[in-house]
C-alpha cells in the first residue's frame, strides 16, 4: 500500500441483502453484493474501481457513504467509525463526502431548478443563507463550467453533459473531502464523456479532493486514476498503481478484462490476443466456494476449490492480487452454509 494518510478504510466490509422476505416472511436467501472488501483510499488520490455489472462496485460506493447499510466488517472515514453512525454525525459525513450519480437524467429532481438542486446541501447543513447562498450557487456553477445565468432553469432544458455538471456542483456544494463518482460518465456521449472526465480531473487537483471513480470502462478508469481496484463478485481481487494494473495485471480476471476492452486501433486489434472468458458471472446469491473466480478461470487448479485467496503483494510496488498462482494464501472454505459453485 502506498504511504500517506488514509481517508477511507474498509476491513472485511460486507453488504448482504436478504432475498424475498418481508412482514413475517423469512428471506429466501442472501445476496452478497459486497462480501469482505479490504480497501484503503489515500487522501488526495483518485482510486478507480472497475468491475462488471453485478460485481458490487456501486453497492460498495454507496456503502462507503452509508447510503446502504453494511452488514459486517468495519468502515472508517478520517478515523471515525462509520458503522452505526447516526443523527448529526451521519449528516456531517454526508457533507464531507459527496456522490455523483450515473444517469444525469434521473439524478436531478425534475421539479426543482438548478439553483434549488445545487443549494440543497447549503440549506441542509445551514452553510449559507440569503444572498451568500445565491453567490455560492453562482460560484459552484462557474466551477463546473456552467453559466450562472442558467440557475433558474429546470433540468429538462439541459443536455446530458450539462446536467452531469449540475450533479457535480451539487456534490461539491458542501465542500466535501471525498467524492464518489458512480458510473458518472456511463450515460454520456463520447465527446461529452471527455469533457466530464477532464472536469473531474481538474476539480480533483484544484480542490484537493479524494476521488473514488467507479466505472465499468477500464479505459476511462485508467485515464483518470492514480490507483485501480478491480472487483469481482463482491470482492476486491486486484489493486495497485494504475500503470501496473493497466499494463501488467497479476490476477487472471483482470487480464481477461483488460484484453476484452476494445481499442480504437484497427491494426492493434487484429494482432491482439483476446482472453475470452467462458460462461457468465455467477450470481452473488450463490458465490462459489474457495476462489470466487474459479468457475471462469482458465488457470484453475486444486487449491482454488477450497481456499479463498487473500490479497497478497505481487508485481509492482503497491500492487496486490488475490490469486493462488502467486502462492496459496487465504482462508480455507469452511462456509457452514455450504455455498457451492454452480458450474
Amino acid at each position: 500500500m502506498s504511504g500517506g494518510d488514509v481517508l477511507v478504510s474498509a476491513r472485511g466490509l460486507e453488504v448482504h441483502f436478504p432475498i424475498g422476505g418481508g412482514f413475517r416472511r423469512k428471506p429466501a436467501g442472501v445476496l452478497r453484493a459486497v462480501d469482505g472488501v479490504d480497501l484503503d483510499i489515500v487522501r488526495g488520490e483518485t482510486l478507480g474501481l472497475v468491475g462488471e455489472s453485478g460485481c458490487g462496485k456501486s453497492t460498495l460506493g454507496n456503502a462507503l457513504l452509508r447510503l446502504v447499510p453494511t452488514t459486517g466488517g468495519t468502515l472508517t472515514f478520517d478515523g471515525t467509525d462509520l458503522t452505526g453512525l447516526q443523527g448529526r454525525r451521519l449528516k456531517e459525513l454526508r457533507r464531507r463526502a459527496g456522490m455523483v450519480f450515473q444517469d444525469p437524467f434521473a439524478s436531478l429532481d425534475p421539479r426543482r431548478t438548478v439553483a434549488q438542486t445545487v443549494s440543497e446541501p447549503l440549506e441542509v447543513h445551514g452553510l449559507r443563507t440569503g444572498r451568500d447562498k445565491a453567490t455560492r450557487v453562482a460560484e459552484l456553477l462557474e466551477l463546473v463550467g456552467l453559466d450562472p445565468g442558467v440557475a433558474g432553469r429546470y433540468p429538462h432544458e439541459f443536455s446530458g453533459g450539462q446536467r452531469q455538471r449540475v450533479g457535480i456542483a451539487r456534490a461539491l456544494a458542501g465542500e466535501p473531502d471525498f467524492l464518489v463518482c458512480d458510473e458518472a460518465i456511463a450515460s454520456l456521449d463520447v465527446s461529452v464523456q471527455a469533457q466530464v472526465l477532464n472536469l473531474l480531473r481538474r476539480l480533483q487537483r484544484q480542490l484537493g479532493l479524494t476521488l473514488l471513480f467507479i466505472s465499468h470502462d477500464l479505459s476511462a478508469v485508467r485515464h483518470i486514476s492514480d490507483r485501480i481496484a478491480v472487483m469481482y463478485l463482491g470482492r476486491v481481487v486486484e489493486i495497485g498503481p494504475a500503470e501496473a494494473v493497466g499494463t501488467d495485471p497479476q490476477m487472471p480476471y483482470t487480464q481477461a478484462l483488460l484484453s476484452a476492452v476494445p481499442l480504437p486501433h484497427p491494426k492493434l486489434e487484429r494482432e491482439r490476443k483476446r482472453i475470452v472468458l467462458t460462461g457468465d458471472v455467477p450470481s452473488p446469491a450463490a458465490v462459489p466456494s474457495g476462489c470466487r473466480f474459479r468457475t471462469r478461470c482458465p488457470y484453475v487448479f486444486e487449491p482454488c476449490d477450497d481456499v479463498d485467496p487473500a490479497l497478497q503483494p505481487v508485481g509492482a510496488p503497491g500492487q496486490q492480487a488475490a490469486c493462488h498462482l502467486h502462492g496459496v494464501v487465504g482462508t480455507p472454505a469452511t462456509t457452514p452454509e455450504g455455498v457451492t459453485a454452480t458450474p
Partner: peptide, 26 residues
C-alpha cells in the same frame, strides 16, 4: 426509488425534507 431522492439523501437531507421537497411533489 428515483435517483434524485437518493442523491438528496447523499447530501444529508432528512426524511422530512425528502418527503416534503422531493417525494410528495413528484
Amino acid at each position: 426509488e428515483e435517483v434524485y431522492v437518493r442523491a438528496s439523501r447523499s447530501v444529508g437531507a432528512s426524511d422530512l425534507r425528502l418527503l416534503t421537497r422531493h417525494v410528495l411533489p413528484n
